[in-house]
Every structure is written in C-alpha cells, then in structure tokens.
C-alpha cells in the first residue's frame, strides 16, 4: 500500500495542476519549484486546460507488473496547448486510428490498482480524442 505517495499528487493527477514561473512566465508540468527555463524560484500553481495534441505514441503489449490487466494499452507524449509535454495513456479510442498531431483532451480514469482486489484504486489523467 502506497497511499501517501499517490494522495499527495491528487492535484496533479486529477486536475493537471503545474506551475507558472513568475519570472519568465513559462508553464511547468510536473511542478518542481525551480523553473527549468530561467532557474528562478517558481511555485505559483497553474491549472492546465487539459487540451493538446499527440506528439508520439506506442502500444504496450508486455506490461509491467500492476498493469497486466490493462494490456494492450497505448501511451503517448502529449503536447499540451500551453507548451509542456506530458506522458499519459490514450483512452476511449474506439476505432479511431491514432496519429501524431491528433487533438486530444484530458479525462480522469483509473491508472492502476495498488495491490490485490482490496487494494487502492489509483485515478489520474489520461487523454482521449478531442470531442469537438
């Protein structure tokens, strides 16, 4: 059981809360308190819109422990409209073929289960094809 490790990331997992640098205005995800662009202190929260496009993607057939029941699944690097790339699974794809450049939007889904059938369900962001 790793409850605190996931609980403390709820802002990021459920709402894509990163940071904006007060010095150079770069938007940062995941939050890190030191701006990777200018090196200044950056701890002003910033909530991303959750919209972006697929930068690259692949399908995983041989999943690591904890994800076997999800395989095969598609992971992507998503370029958020505000700039940063984020790693996440693609979901709700149906018959939609994935392409680089495809517009996507954030949704909240189950990421994995912590431990056995009584274990904690860990939720977080995934991205689906944009609805409009």
């Amino acid at each position: 059981m790793e409850i605190p490790r996931h609980w403390r990331l709820k802002q990021q997992r459920y709402s894509l809360v990163g940071e904006i640098c007060p010095h150079c205005q770069v938007k940062i995800f995941p939050p890190r308190d030191v701006c990777p662009n200018c090196g200044g202190e950056a701890n002003t929260p910033y909530t991303f819109s959750g919209r972006g496009e697929v930068y690259s993607y692949t399908t995983i057939y041989e999943a690591p422990a904890g994800f076997e029941d999800k395989a095969p699944y598609t992971v992507a690097l998503v370029k958020l409209d505000e700039g940063p790339l984020v790693t996440a699974q693609l979901t709700d794809l149906g018959d939609t073929p994935v392409e680089i450049g495809m517009p996507v939007e954030m949704v909240t889904r189950r990421l994995r289960q912590d431990g056995d059938e009584r274990g904690m369900l860990i939720y977080g962001y995934k991205f689906r094809p944009a609805m409009n």
Binding site: P30, I60, F67, K70, V75, A88, I122, G124, K126
Partner: peptide
Amino acid sequence: DFEAIHGLT
C-alpha cells in the same frame, strides 16, 4: 510519479 505510473517502460 509522472512516467512509470502511466504504465510507461
């Protein structure tokens, strides 16, 4: 926290 949790390897 930001790669492996998404099933990335």
